[in-house]
Design a protein around this nucleic acid. Sequence first.
DNA 1: CGCGAGCTTGATGCCGATCAATGCATGTGG
DNA 2: CCACATGCATTGATCGGCATCAAGCTCGCG
Lengths: 245, 245
Amino acid sequence: MQSTPSTLRLEPFKVACSSCNLRELCLPVGMSNQQLERLDDIVATRRTVPRGEALFHVGDAFTALYAVRTGFFKTCVSSEDGRDQVTGFQMAGELLGLDGIGTDRHTCDALALEDSQVCIIPFHQLEELSRELSDLQRHFHKIMSREIVRDHGVMLLLGSMRAEERLAAFLLNLTQRLRTRGFSSSSLILRMTREEIGSYLGLKLETVSRAFSRFQDEGILTVKQRQIEVLDPDALQRLVNGSPC
Amino acid sequence: MQSTPSTLRLEPFKVACSSCNLRELCLPVGMSNQQLERLDDIVATRRTVPRGEALFHVGDAFTALYAVRTGFFKTCVSSEDGRDQVTGFQMAGELLGLDGIGTDRHTCDALALEDSQVCIIPFHQLEELSRELSDLQRHFHKIMSREIVRDHGVMLLLGSMRAEERLAAFLLNLTQRLRTRGFSSSSLILRMTREEIGSYLGLKLETVSRAFSRFQDEGILTVKQRQIEVLDPDALQRLVNGSPC
DNA sequence: CGCGAGCTTGATGCCGATCAATGCATGTGG
DNA sequence: CCACATGCATTGATCGGCATCAAGCTCGCG
């Protein structure tokens, strides 16, 4: 947990969606150059979040959305009695903070799993601009809707899949998202602990570890700590679909 | 199963949000009379959905959101191999169809659990109007955000609670929503089967039934088929919070 | 080198799934 | 009106997957 000092660091220099290499993955998807310049006006600053620190906490006032530029995050909610649940992992180009719109306060914690950087998107200004630019409005609505659909998928996973199916689905989802970002879909380094994976999947860390070991025994992948090589993605796919019972 | 014929029935006559008794619960929350008239212009028709029939199916083209006027719905998703998961139950004043915005196709089925009526909100027109009326825009964003937050709560439930805690949380949520609508919060009639409750909570119907019986034995409530009388809501609350282990 | 966080692996037990029988309410046709 | 079918709910007996408890192991780091 080598963390730089925990002061909130804002980058004063101008940042620009129009020249960002994530513009095909992030909020700007499908916008014209002219529209992008308008977006640049409101997405003016970045923030650095060292590994282990929070981008925001439950109860923090909601003022902005955050687009992950580099790094990796988890979001988690917790119940009165301390049990907590990882609700998602976010990587470059993905949006954080949608939970806060409903009540003007954040309802989950967002924690950096590695040194990360986010673009700050002041929400009032985003709403204002999206009243002008229907493409932006439309795209923002799609992003929220997809988050709802993703959550429904997780409910299906938590409600009806067995341990190995859950892990297989999780790995396929990760590799899929990495592929979209131009990374290898067979070789990946997990940014999170077994416990965090377990929390996301509704399993204990020992169960996650055993499932990894079983996959390795069956030649589906190799595990060396957090370094995973997927040898047989089809086998993973078969696990999440037709359970061979 | 007294169902009227299954033809899609549109009510040709004018309906009006401005005079709807659900306007304090539904999309119009917080809008001025003048703004409401604008909304009336786009929410022009209703649709009747008999018990057991679908408002929409997975894969249907997405064109509109639906506000429940009367009745009760469930939404469910299913995986390739037939397993399915109830993702929510919707009652008067709640919105259906948000899942479709992201891909222009619905990603879940919405089924009426009793004879129901919905108001049709054409989505393009809603977007258009919300570019003009920032109050409407703001409120719509809040609704989507709250849906995301609700889903996170369900994930927490599915990922970390035990059977009785899940059922307790479910009952408290139901009674809470009924209270908001002016109904008794102690006496309720379940609109769904044990199997549907189980699917929502990630449990089998026998487990749901046993949990009901145990609650009855402990004097927390009485069950007679789908008729529930909650005698000790605090006991339910204690179950979901501090598990007494 | 030694510490500690995270990971693996084994032994055991429990919660909820599964299988199976019965009960109960509603509806239907003889 | 009764006999019977059907759908849903309850209850019991048994089983199995995952949690739990408990050692060790690995690796990075001070």
